[in-house]
Amino acid sequence: MGPVFPHLHLITGGQDPLAAVAAAVAAASRLGATDRLAIQVRVEDHVTDRDAYELADAVLELCRPHGVLCLVNDRLHVALAVGADGGHVGAADLPVAAARRVLGSSAMLGATCRDADAARAARRAGASYLGVGPAFATTTKTGLPDPLGVDAIGVVAAAVPDTPIVAIGGVTAKNAAGLRAAGAAAVAVVGAIMNATDPLRATEELLEAVA
Rank of each mutant, 00 (worst) to 15 (best):
V59H: 01
G90Q: 13
L80V: 03
D93Y: 01
V78P: 00
G87T: 11
G87K: 14
A79D: 00
N73P: 12
H88L: 12
N73V: 11
L76A: 04
L76V: 02
D93T: 05
E61K: 10
A84F: 05
V59F: 03
E54L: 15
V89F: 06
D93S: 05
L94T: 10
A84M: 09
G87Y: 04
D93G: 05
A81I: 10
V68Y: 03
D93Q: 08
R64Y: 04
A81T: 09
C63V: 07
G86C: 08
L71M: 14
V72I: 11
G67K: 13
P95Y: 12
R64G: 04
V72A: 05
E54T: 15
V59S: 03
D57Y: 12
N73Q: 11
V96H: 06
L71E: 10
P65W: 02
E61H: 10
A58R: 15
L62S: 03
V72Y: 02
L71A: 05
A56D: 02
P95C: 12
V68I: 09
V96P: 07
A56H: 08
V89G: 05
V59D: 03
A84E: 12
P65I: 08
G67D: 08
D57C: 14
D74Y: 02
V82P: 00
L94G: 07
V82E: 04
A92N: 13
P65Q: 03
L76W: 02
L62H: 09
G83E: 09
D85M: 01
V68Q: 01
G90N: 13
G87P: 10
A58T: 14
A58Y: 06
V82M: 07
A58M: 10
L55W: 05
G86K: 11
V96K: 08
L80E: 03
E61A: 15
A84P: 05
V89L: 11
L76P: 02
G86A: 07
L62A: 11
